[in-house]
Amino acid sequence: MRSTTVPTRSAAALAVLAACAAVLGGGGPSGAVPTAATGAPQAVQQTQQQQAQSDTCDIYASVPPSSVDGPAVKAIKARRSLVIGVDQNSYRWGARNPNTGQIEGFDIDLARAIGTAIMGDPEKVVLKPVATADRVDAVQKNRVDLIVRTMTVNCKRMEDVAFSKPYFSITQRVLVPKTSPAKNLDEAIGGRNVCVAKGSTAADVFDPAKNGAKKDAGAHLTVVENQLDCLVLMQLGKVDATMTDDGLAAGQAAQDQTVRIVDGDVQPEVIGVAMLKGSTDLTARVNQVLADYHAGGEWGRSYDRWLKPYMLNDAEHYWPVPH
């Protein structure tokens, strides 16, 4: 996790002042719940819709649900196994429990539900860890049939792979140590040393080339390989704040009682299940499972089990609703 420091704007004096303020204003909220901060659901929903509409494509668009077996589903059934690409490093989403050797989490529940519904037998579902950068390639090269791995739906990716209807709404949030006096997102990143994962949405937020929403925040970026590396650097006092999506932020807060998620968010997005572009029958099938999974309450129960203790809102807040 080689890290590089990229000053987005020279604001050394500001940084020093801010650091002094951080020291002087130490303390901060110290409740037992890691996410004591209250969200702003209304504002979130609004920006989310604005963002979605400003895109050149409809990220909520997917084929209608159907439970008919088309050629793609039949081919998978003939092969007797459905391979689903997952993550094994995102705590509470998809992570390998070192003591049991099993991968578990919210995405894993969903992957198993989809697999079992299509194959009729959980034994025929193979969960295959896939690296973040390898997701599109793994689908296109047929190494996996589906990707259930906190994969953001966006227009560029929709050109490469097909997405199901989105199953979770996320935004970019900021984590700080509990001792930080920052009251909201802007205070937490303004002129500070902020950690982001390489190639992540959070990195784009600060990127002037991509016209990121916070490109003018004067933040000094520390770019690392994996979002968890940010938590290490934050624990060691090498960065002031970490930006990542709310799901992963929840995972970090779950692993460390001394960090909190500050108020405010940017860059609302949705995540979906990715698969091969031509397999419309498979996409329709997955959409059917997703609809049933949500309607049947399993989606909410899985949320309650894995994510609720660390998230700011109830399950339904995160179910993506098209505008």
């Binding site: 070192p98 968890l228 290490v232």
Partner: peptide, 18 residues
């Protein structure tokens, strides 16, 4: 961290190795 089953342990080990 690893003994508590949290993935942060892996990040620490990779940092230590680096």
């Amino acid at each position: 961290d690893n003994r508590q089953g949290i993935p942060l342990g892996g990040a620490y080990l990779r940092y230590a190795s680096e």
